[in-house]
Write a protein that binds this DNA or RNA. Structure first.
Lengths: 392, 392
DNA sequence: TCCTTTCATTTAAGCGGTTAAATTTTCAGT
DNA sequence: ACTGAAAATTTAACCGCTTAAATGAAAGGA
């Protein structure tokens, strides 16, 4: 079989005609002696290569490449012949070879801590959509909350497999990233960060988490709540500190201070929120509101209250941060401070891609628009009876 | 700066010594005349390459490569020298170049319809973990429920960027996949499928969805439910047909038949389940149970009932299929037929990787273990009052 | 001392594309 | 028919790494 194919090509070459030559054979391109040394053979089960296509079309790889990448550069008649050969072989460019040659893989990676947390799929979906539109592939790297895994990914991928990396809160510090990046200038963007370690060395997309916490606090205070339990999420990137600070800001404005006994630091998950709530209720059975630093925790908190037979928002109000889809789907629908995930995701990926395409991009700091309170069904005015009970 | 580095290398070469040479210069490898033609220069901002490392260590790229890939093949003293050079340059192998050379990218892609649906993140998390353990990278391709996007991904990636592709229910038929794969033998596995179109052409990992539907039906029937609304999810891969068939099987066993007016076909999402439920209630306000072909729909159904002030399971029982994490986190916790996502994911990715590594793998059909009923709080015995009301 | 092994390293040919520069062809103009 | 510029195509180097085969050095044996 292989033999047969080989001689088929040989014949082609000798005859100075391509299988798809449709015009008078006036050109003698393709019949140079140099075409004999390399006699590609077809093996089923293998991709056709550029040179196989070229051979069939009676041109060189350069011409085929130009047909593919620089339309207009090749004469229409030749283009037709080449396209026929491409169709006949089912040729598809080998993206790895192209990447090596161009020094650009057209892939970007996104490193995130926990794909189970709905925030990330929602982020990924948007980022991928943008990437696709801009002709990039997205590689999702889930670290399972282990910073070392994230580091390993960055070390291996950045600049060698991916043209750039988007790092979500994975507990990898800017310092570490600078180290990991090593000598190369592979673009890395830190997205959706709480704090900025070295704003002028690594591009950040930052969200005003502090303000989000403050807004949540203000909302609860305005509703008359004074005995508020706080649940702070803790991922591999440390605890969600700024959101708590913002909440304290709101209390301070009202001349109040936070008592540490009303705060729980837990894993950033539904069960974390659940456990924290039970614990808070244990400490203060009379609390009238819960502030959770994100919606997943708030969801868990709600379930805990339901389990205890406590009404939301009748007895206890709950407010979260982020506004993931689940927030509006759960019952009672969650009042939350929306972060505009879409904007964060778009800004982040666009910044990264801009850096890739425009290599002399400065380290930038992008701020997305401010968080916004979305009032749904999980918060309400504190009950009168509770107000009277304030002194307890 | 560049000049300085160039001459540094030149000196090195002339001197026949590497910067890290620690032993007597007894060998004269590395001082051959051929080393002069290629004089790499360092440019900051660029990755060090193998040949730069080689130059510094006073060896050839082959040796450095062997140090990296075939430990033991290179003399310990040389190995040390090379490692020192690697450390000094911060060298990291260019994975694209390696992939091209080896004909293997060590990347696999997973094509899925909707990353927002928690089933997929849960699947991805496990698949990625296995892939990572087996030294592969995972590329997640979200088609946003558009089969064409999935096709485009497969066409571009299979065999040219990824060593294999795992296709979840994206509405791409086996026929199309065979076409897309074209001439190449790039491994593709269809995972978690409902129906098998060409079991002997494409490897499948199949789940007994029919049985899942049957178990759900049996459960509701055993609890005495007779007026059951059915919600069938419909993704880009068509409707979840077998689950419905299984449910019908259960009815048939009990000598009953399904009335199409009790069935709703909706988008596979929370809101789909919500709307379907309202519609079902409209048709039969007295229904006592709802069977949803997956948990996300069941979640939506629950919310709809809550909104209507209907108690679950007091007035209406709900059963789903899949057992995503949300099923146990929601309230009331969802009774569902568990599919063992972990097993499906592991089987799928392992099958794919086995095929990649053992190229003459036969098209296989893997069946995972049977679905299992998990009784939680969303189902209960039908109320007596309703039983009396049966004639309505 | 010479011949044979064995071990360590180098040589050089890919992998499958891209692209600047060189070459050949086409074609307008005289 | 001839000339030169423009257009089309080819040439050949390169991207960074892997690997089978070739080469050289060291060691053992007669």
């Amino acid at each position: 079989m292989q033999e047969a194919f080989s001689s088929f090509f040989w014949t082609l070459t000798k005859r100075r005609k391509s299988a798809f030559q449709v015009e008078k054979p006036s050109k003698n391109y393709g019949l140079r002696s140099h075409s004999s040394p390399a006699q590609p053979t077809f093996s089923k089960n293998k991709m056709a290569t550029l040179s196989e296509v070229a051979q069939i079309a009676g041109v060189t790889t350069a011409t085929v490449s130009n047909v593919l990448r620089n339309p207009g550069k090749v004469k229409p008649s030749t283009t037709k012949r080449v396209q026929a050969a491409i169709a006949a072989t089912g040729y598809r460019p080998n993206l790895m070879a192209r990447a090596l040659s161009e020094g650009k893989s057209s892939m970007v990676a996104i490193v995130l801590p926990n794909i189970i947390n709905p925030y990330y799929p929602e982020f990924v979906r948007i980022a991928e959509r943008v990437a696709r539109q801009r002709q990039y592939f997205l590689m999702v790297c889930n670290t399972d909350e282990q910073a070392e895994i994230g580091c390993a990914y960055i070390r291996q991928i950045a600049g060698t497999l991916a043209d750039g990396v988007l790092v979500l809160h994975t507990g990898i510090s800017a310092t570490e990233i600078l180290e990991l990046r090593g000598g190369r200038r592979s673009p890395i963007v830190l997205a959706s960060e709480e704090t900025i370690e070295f704003p002028d060395t690594i591009p950040h997309v930052i969200v005003n988490f502090r303000m989000a916490g403050q807004i949540a606090g203000q909302h609860l205070l305005e509703l008359g709540h004074r005995r508020i339990g706080v649940i702070v999420g803790q991922g591999c990137d440390g605890m969600q500190h700024l959101r708590l600070e913002g909440f304290k800001d709101a209390l301070a404005e009202a001349g109040m201070a936070l008592d540490e006994k009303d705060v729980r630091y837990v894993l950033d998950s539904v069960s974390g929120g659940h456990e924290a709530t039970l614990s808070l209720l244990n400490t203060d059975p009379g609390l009238t509101a819960i502030f959770a630093t994100n919606d997943l925790l708030a969801f868990g908190a709600t379930q805990a209250l339901v389990d205890k037979g406590i009404s939301v928002p009748g007895d206890v109000s709950i407010v979260g941060i982020t506004n993931i889809q689940l927030a509006q789907e759960m019952r009672p629908a969650l009042t939350t401070v929306a972060l505009n995930i879409e904007e964060v995701a778009k800004s982040s990926i666009n910044l990264l891609l801009d850096m890739i395409e425009n290599s002399e991009h400065q380290p930038t700091l992008v701020r997305v628009s401010d968080p916004q309170l979305i009032i749904r069904a999980s918060t309400g005015h504190v009950r009168k009876s509770v107000l009277l009970d304030k002194s307890v």
